[in-house]
């Protein structure tokens, strides 16, 4: 099987692992960071859901997520957007 490019297969595996594993881990980290500081029952609920709680007469819990967590979360999502854009760059032949 000398005609098989084993090197390319190895590169394929490593790069796929780095891109997919990295992108998923960073995205998950971003979601996790968004949950920082939220009370357990509200952990990670969306703004819409939170508003419902207010409408129900509850006092809105102050947003306790530290600014640094928000920043880090948005940084994670920004990195993933960059990865997606790079993916688009790879797909579209006109860019090459």
């Amino acid at each position: 099987m000398s005609g098989i490019d084993w090197g390319a297969l190895g590169t394929e595996f490593v790069l796929s692992l780095v891109f997919a594993g990295g992108a998923v881990a960073i995205y998950a980290l971003g979601l996790r960071l968004l949950a920082v500081g939220a009370p357990p029952e509200l952990r990670l609920e969306t703004a819409a859901v939170r508003t419902e709680h207010v409408a129900d007469g509850e006092i809105e819990t102050p947003h306790r997520r530290p600014a640094v967590a928000s920043f880090a979360a948005y940084l994670c999502f920004a990195i993933d957007i960059a990865v997606v854009l790079y993916g688009l760059y790879m797909i579209i032949p006109q860019f090459h």
């Binding site: 995205y27 998950a28 971003g30 979601l31 996790r32 968004l34 949950a35 952990r43 990670l44 609920e45 969306t46 859901v49």
Partner: peptide
């Protein structure tokens, strides 16, 4: 996301 398994994470 072990400790953040509520709806928000799923939607994300």
């Amino acid at each position: 996301t072990r400790r953040a398994t509520s709806q928000g994470a799923e939607a994300g």
